[in-house]
């Protein structure tokens, strides 16, 4: 059988945990600072913008319109057919310091230059954001509640130290991914929001798999320090971790390189998230649990009283 990872020797993952913590700490500080100073580059869904309705004489070529707009600094424009094949609805982000009318004229000139047909302006107006404050508020609340419930579930199924580790890793991944978008100034739209949720899902999955193995190894091996056991568990799951990340990354690479401009942000967020999610289940979740002092006694199965043992036999 092929093996990507030879797992004869235990890899001393936890030996490098201080380095990893400093690394993560710096990244977290940078992310939070950038989120505070630069904030996020919100997309059209969040900001609203200008809507322009134009009419063509013949069937309009939407992809050409998109290319024209993209090439002239109106990236991220939404271009869609409106009622008929000849009518086109264009939504663009607000342009700072430029009046809507000027933007409209600009765009009309661009579109006219790109085709030999007559293009007529039907309407130009500003539009408000599509997502209300409700989404932002409730979205934050939803994520927070989800984190708490995950914490409770893992604490119930495993142990509270592992649960804190898992939730710490989740928060770490979310902040770093948001930070990446803030630092690079990438547009944050609804698809990126979805990607962020997927990152959370991926990270939970990865963390739980690792935690599960840690618990199992604590129960299986009667000897060894907590650090050794965790190293062993991480080594045991390494092969699986690499293969799963690899398959996910394969799909994401395809999305990133072949998926076109619109899902670029989506693929970027997920690619980054997969790497950071894999890293965090080792160096945040596991090492946090270790630092909190997780030990064999905490993970031994509780002595279960057999049901009915204390009861008198039925007459």
């Amino acid at each position: 059988m092929h093996e990507l990872i030879k797992t004869d020797k235990t890899i001393p993952f936890m030996r490098f945990r201080m380095v990893a913590w400093i690394f993560s700490g710096l990244l977290l500080i940078a992310s939070i600072a950038s989120l505070a100073i630069n904030q996020l580059n919100w997309g059209l869904d969040f900001t609203g913008g200008t809507v322009i309705e134009v009419g063509y004489e013949r069937e309009a070529d939407l992809s050409e319109i998109r290319t024209t707009l993209d090439a002239n600094g109106f990236s991220g424009a939404v271009v869609q057919n409106f009622g008929t094949q000849q009518d086109v609805l264009i939504r663009i982000e607000p342009q700072e310091g430029v009046k809507a009318q000027e933007v409209g004229d600009n765009i009309l000139n661009l579109l006219r230059a790109a085709t030999d047909e007559e293009v007529t302006m039907r309407r130009i107006e500003f539009v408000g954001p599509n997502v209300g404050d409700q989404l932002t508020q409730q979205g934050g609340l939803a994520m927070l509640t989800a984190l708490i419930c995950i914490l409770i579930y893992i604490a119930f199924r495993f142990e509270w130290r592992l649960a804190l580790g898992a939730v710490g890793a989740l928060a770490h991944d979310v902040i770093l991914t948001l930070g990446l978008f803030s630092i690079l100034g990438l547009e944050f739209d609804l698809t990126v929001l979805a990607a962020l949720l997927a990152v959370i899902g991926y990270s939970i999955n990865d963390t739980v798999v690792v935690s599960d193995r840690i618990r199992e190894n604590f129960r299986k091996f009667r000897k060894g320090s907590s650090e050794e056991i965790i190293n062993g568990a991480l080594t045991d799951t390494m092969s699986r971790t690499v293969i799963t990340s690899l398959t996910t990354v394969l799909v994401l690479f395809a999305l990133f390189f072949l998926g076109g401009a619109l899902i670029h942000g989506f693929a970027t967020a997920l690619l980054f998230g997969v790497f950071i999610g894999t890293y965090s289940s080792v160096y945040i979740a596991s090492s946090l649990a270790l630092a909190l002092g997780v030990s064999r006694e905490d993970l031994m199965p509780p002595e279960v009283e057999k049901e009915g043992e204390d009861l008198d036999p039925m007459p």
Binding site: V131, Q134, L135, Q138, G139, L141, A142, M143, T145, A146, C149, I150, Y153, I154, L190, L193, A194, L197, I200, G201, I204, N205, V208, V209, D212
Partner: peptide, 20 residues
Amino acid sequence: ANVTTLIAAIILFAIGTGPI
């Protein structure tokens, strides 16, 4: 792993709006 993710999904469904 799946139950944990499912919990997250159910909460996102119950509290979140629109695309969430």
